[in-house]
Amino acid sequence: MAKGKYPINIWVNEERYEKLQKAGLSGMCEEMLAGLKVIRVYANDPQRDKILKVFPTAKFDSATTKSIELLPRDVKDKIFSVVIDKESVDILDDFLSAY
């Protein structure tokens, strides 16, 4: 996948951090906003458009953060699971193939 411009921020709570640690992937986390842990999965233009179409609650924050936000939590959980399985953040093609 071309490294796209639009991140999906998977905010890492304790439960997610524990899973990352178990998989030896805690180094994948970035820190944002005064220490908040996040995994950023990037979408390119077609992927972004598909996400916004498939998940109507999602919003592209064009004004401030240029990120894709407000995906339902269970969808983020699924994306997070694929990240763990593939040990990579380059997973959107795989994830979106089911939709």
Partner: peptide, 8 residues
Amino acid sequence: FSGTLIRS
């Protein structure tokens, strides 16, 4: 950061 990001 934005209200949308915080909601997320």
